[in-house]
Design a protein around this nucleic acid. Structure first.
Length: 272
DNA sequence: ACCCAGGCGACGA
DNA sequence: TCGTCGCATGGG
């Protein structure tokens, strides 16, 4: 059980919005309750809040911050520099409102598995399936861990019936098998240029261009990855018929995240 | 009831 | 190589 009396407090970097980062559709396991975000990564459970430019971690000390959370939140990346380099009106507008979004450095397996589940699915339901996946097959008392590929590799798609993941169950099992067996080598994907990761990840059943790009962006922090889902398709059709502007080159994944969230929020506001 | 969701694989032309 | 269709499920 996490000792929530353990507290670490520090100043937030510029361009840092905790809530947006945890709830913009890149991670699916964080929950907001009683003014704090509750979640876990890399084996550490934590509660986090942001207030007046200060970040407070409950259940974490400075050691946990340095070994896990600093990297997880991409703490030392200069997002302001990236935002300031945009010279495109839509990107400037999206970044103005949502520039606090950080591209989280999630665990590769969790990111891959989560985005396999995301296909032809909506975010509330993705969260439900992942919650049941962790609840059924994760470990630990308190908040359960995301089940490892080794844990899932011994199962069959039928064993995943309680998740109600539908046709995605067989894809999860295939991914677990290929990762647990070493056929897909995360360390290599991490080290090699993005094209290698694309080729490797797409060997998994149920992993196409979109899911591969998401895994590479959120699980391997390849910020030039560019996932194109239905929302980004709308963005491209409506605003960028000739492709993303030049200023986004090399940081397509970050630009994508601001635009994705901006476009989704705009739709929600218009329908109200 | 209906449309759609951070898509993909199979299939036919 | 390219368009089209079925897929499981359930949120809105």
């Amino acid at each position: 059980m996490t000792d929530i009396k353990k507290i670490y407090e520090t100043e937030a970097p510029v361009c840092f919005n905790l809530g947006l980062s945890l709830d913009c559709g890149q991670a699916f396991r964080w929950e907001y309750q009683d003014g704090r975000w509750h979640g876990a990564a890399f084996g550490k459970e934590v509660y986090i809040a942001q207030k007046d430019g200060r970040i407070t971690f409950w259940g974490a000390d400075s050691g946990d911050f340095e070994s896990v959370w600093r990297a997880y939140f991409d703490w030392d990346c200069d997002y302001k520099k990236i935002l300031d380099s945009y010279d495109d009106k839509y990107l400037i507008e999206a970044a103005k409102q949502y520039g606090g979004i950080r591209i989280l450095r999630q665990e590769p397996w969790e990111a891959l598995c989560s985005f396999i589940i995301s296909q032809n699915n909506n975010i509330p339901r993705i969260k439900g399936i992942i919650g049941r996946l962790c609840g059924c097959f994760g470990e630990g008392d308190g908040l359960k861990s995301f089940p490892s590929p080794e844990r899932l590799a011994v199962l069959s798609p039928d064993d995943l019936a309680p998740l109600r993941a539908g046709f995605r169950a067989k894809y999860i099992i295939d991914a677990a098998n290929k990762v647990a067996s070493g056929e897909i080598d995360f360390a290599q994907i991490d080290r090699m240029p993005i094209e290698y990761g694309r080729e490797q990840l797409k060997k998994i059943k149920g992993v196409g261009d979109k899911v591969a790009e998401c895994a590479l962006l959120y699980g391997f922090h390849k910020i030039e990855a560019f996932p194109v889902d239905v929302w980004v398709k709308r963005i491209m059709a409506e605003m960028y018929p000739g492709g993303l502007p030049e200023c986004a080159r090399g940081t397509e994944g970050i630009a994508q995240q601001y635009l994705f969230h901006w476009r989704r929020m705009k739709d929600r506001q218009d329908n109200k």
